[in-house]
Amino acid sequence: MNARPMLRGLWRWAREFAGERAYEVYLEHHHARHPGEPPLPEREFWRRRTDDRERNPRARCC
């Protein structure tokens, strides 16, 4: 068994869990759904993503 692909899978999973892949996912989504339009630059994307939570607060349980 090679450990490298497994580690890479785990790292990818951790990034996904932490929400770090959001921009990559957004780019994929954007190219698929709105081809031709320029996507948001990375910095702007993260800024909007956090500010979005200003309008949609999430309940956290006890």
Partner: peptide, 13 residues
């Protein structure tokens, strides 16, 4: 996370 390294959640955490 806002100004230096946007999106680097794991590193920041």
């Amino acid at each position: 996370l806002r100004y230096l390294r946007p999106g680097r959640v794991i590193e920041t955490s």
